[in-house]
Computed example of a mutant assay.
Amino acid sequence: MKILVISGSPHKSGSTALLTENFIAGAEEAGHEVCRFDASFKSIHPCMGCERCHKTGDGCVFKDDMEELRPEVLNSDAIVFVSPVYYFGMNAQLAAAIDRFYAFNDKLMTQDKKAALITAFADDEEDACSGLVKTYQLTLRYMGWEDRGIVAAQGCSNADDVLQSSYPTQAYRLGKNF
């Protein structure tokens, strides 16, 4: 299976980066091919809803790093979304990439994909990530994709917090059992 991991984390050594590495290790050990796209270190303009992508058939008006991500999204069997929780939802870097799926929604909605969500957040309250989880669930429902799991690292504001928890093992198992 070809798995695309789209990370919105702006911290190369942060909590979600650590969880992502564990997920990838498990997935690769299980024999999956994994491609990682770090949206925070790419140039992705936000969707403007200009409709050029649908009116002309020439794709998005922006020729940015979505040109690299688009074929990976279309050619993957599964997509894993990774985001820290910022104000109870996904961060802007990941949201910008997902919003740009709009240009090729018609193709995506005909594909049977699997998906997962990996997140970390400092709050000790489980519902602090409920906005992100709900957005993820609604996106999958809209696309018709299958949910394969969620790792939500509660109370983990940094990599040390994650290392002192069971969340790396959970992320590894999610990848291993994908």
Score class of each variant (00 low, 15 high):
residue 107 K to G: 04
residue 126 E to H: 13
residue 77 D to M: 04
residue 32 H to A: 08
residue 135 T to P: 06
residue 61 V to A: 14
residue 161 D to V: 02
residue 113 K to D: 03
residue 50 C to G: 07
residue 103 A to V: 03
residue 44 I to H: 13
residue 116 A to L: 05
residue 26 G to A: 01
residue 31 G to C: 08
residue 29 E to T: 13
residue 97 A to L: 06
residue 76 S to V: 03
residue 73 V to N: 11
residue 1 M to W: 10
residue 72 E to R: 12
residue 127 D to E: 11
residue 131 G to D: 08
residue 173 R to M: 14
residue 133 V to D: 05
residue 129 C to W: 10
residue 48 M to L: 15
residue 160 D to W: 05
residue 148 R to S: 04
residue 80 V to N: 02
residue 57 G to A: 05
residue 105 N to L: 13
residue 128 A to D: 12
residue 69 L to C: 01
residue 33 E to T: 15
residue 21 E to K: 09
residue 33 E to C: 12
residue 158 N to T: 03
residue 9 S to N: 13
residue 150 I to H: 02
residue 140 L to D: 13
residue 4 L to W: 07
residue 128 A to K: 09
residue 67 E to K: 11
residue 86 Y to Q: 01
residue 98 I to F: 08
residue 39 A to T: 04
residue 20 T to Q: 12
residue 14 G to T: 05
residue 99 D to Y: 08
residue 134 K to Y: 14
residue 23 F to P: 06
residue 1 M to G: 14
residue 4 L to Y: 06
residue 122 A to C: 10
residue 62 F to D: 07
residue 128 A to N: 09
residue 96 A to P: 01
residue 146 E to W: 08
residue 62 F to H: 10
residue 104 F to C: 02
residue 112 D to Y: 09
residue 23 F to I: 05
residue 173 R to E: 15
residue 3 I to H: 02
residue 67 E to N: 09
residue 66 M to D: 09
residue 163 L to Q: 14
residue 95 A to G: 04
residue 125 E to I: 05
residue 124 D to R: 06
residue 9 S to L: 09
residue 126 E to M: 12
residue 43 S to G: 08
residue 54 H to F: 15
residue 57 G to R: 00
residue 101 F to W: 10
residue 2 K to H: 15
residue 93 Q to V: 05
residue 100 R to K: 11
residue 108 L to W: 04
residue 85 V to G: 03
residue 9 S to I: 01
residue 146 E to K: 15
residue 139 T to V: 06
residue 56 T to C: 05
residue 43 S to H: 12
residue 168 P to T: 09
residue 169 T to K: 12
residue 32 H to K: 02
residue 55 K to P: 03
residue 65 D to E: 06
residue 108 L to C: 07
residue 10 P to M: 00
residue 37 F to Y: 13
residue 177 N to I: 09
residue 34 V to F: 03
residue 7 S to M: 08
residue 124 D to N: 12
residue 125 E to T: 05
residue 115 A to E: 02
residue 168 P to F: 11
residue 30 A to M: 05
residue 52 R to T: 09
residue 17 A to T: 00
residue 120 A to W: 03
residue 3 I to N: 00
residue 141 R to M: 06
residue 114 K to L: 10
residue 61 V to C: 11
residue 44 I to W: 11
residue 116 A to P: 02
residue 95 A to I: 11
